[in-house]
Amino acid sequence: MSVATAATSTSARPRRRSRGGGQRSAPYVFLAPFIVLFVGFLIVPIGLAVWNSLHTVQRSGLGFGSSSETAFTGLSNYTDALTNPEFLDGLGRVLLFGAVQVPVMLALALVLALLFDSAAVKFTRFFQLSVFLPYAVPAVVAALLWGFLYQPQVSPIVDALGSVGIDPDFLAPGTVLWSIANVTIWSVTGVNMIIIFSALQTVPREIYEAARIDGAGEIRTALRIKMPMIAPAIILTALFSVIGTLQLFNEPMVMRSVTSNVSSEYTPNMMIFSTTTQGGNINLGSAMAILLGLVTFALSVAVSAASNRRGGKR
């Protein structure tokens, strides 16, 4: 009997080991698709862009029989990008755009979320859907729609303002940037409102009841209780907005068909597109893309650091 028991336990040991090995490898099996896609669609393209930015295609010969070869040129493409006035103007333009558009959009999203979370607004679901619907409209379609509303010849908005003595020019050189900002605010305020509103739903209602017992009104409750408790959601929307601002492309590209005050180098992404596709200079375009990515990363880190510093002071 003891011999049979020992044989049984001996034969069971390898099975236990195999099960343990399978359990240890299971997380890697589930992570494998993500790792493959992450490397293939993010790491490899970034590495290829860095490699292209450090090289230049040099062509030799005239007419027939000309040849080209790729040569290592170090940081020369980065120097060309940083000394290109059109690229720098576009970068400064989107930074100014973000400095105005992001706070205005976040303020609207926050106010709407606080209103929908309060008892002051009836038919909350209907109004939430109404505010969110513009986000479901593709950016190209939204830009075409607003481009129609900006044209003086056919715009009902221009006609209505003209009837009260106001003669606006939404597509003038000094106002077209803010007309584009209006399109983006109209498009993305709803989704940021949903993120902030969802964060408000996680706050325990007992805290609000305690605040009311202490005599706090709706405004004081929103400023002293709700906003501090949903600060991570506000920071998240701010980060997404900063990244989206620096990637501005669809709206100004569509506006080019409406006005001549938007050039092909109006934003850094448009400059990169123009340099690589129309100019055929992939190496310089890659350097511009890397620089834009570094600026985006630096601003994202700055926003995170500032929010963490404020959270630490509390």
Rank of each mutant, 00 (worst) to 15 (best):
L82D: 00
P85F: 01
P85M: 08
L88K: 06
D89V: 10
L91N: 06
G92V: 04
G92F: 03
V94N: 02
L95D: 08
L96T: 15
L96K: 13
L96E: 12
G98S: 11
G98D: 02
Q101W: 12
P103G: 09
V104W: 03
A107D: 05
L115M: 14
D117I: 01
A119C: 05
A119W: 08
A119G: 15
A120P: 04
V121C: 02
F123E: 13
F127G: 09
S130C: 13
S130P: 07
V131T: 14
Y135W: 14
V137G: 10
A139T: 13
V140P: 00
V141Q: 06
V141M: 11
A142Y: 03
A142R: 06
Y150A: 05
Y150E: 03
P152R: 03
V154R: 00
V154Q: 01
D159F: 07
D159H: 11
G162P: 07
G162Y: 03
S163I: 05
V164P: 00
V164Y: 01
G165K: 04
I166S: 04
D167W: 08
D169G: 06
F170Y: 10
L171K: 07
T175R: 06
W178Y: 14
V183K: 00
T184A: 11
T184M: 12
I185P: 15
I185G: 11
S187I: 12
V188S: 14
N192D: 14
N192W: 11
I194D: 12
I195Q: 06
I195V: 15
F197H: 13
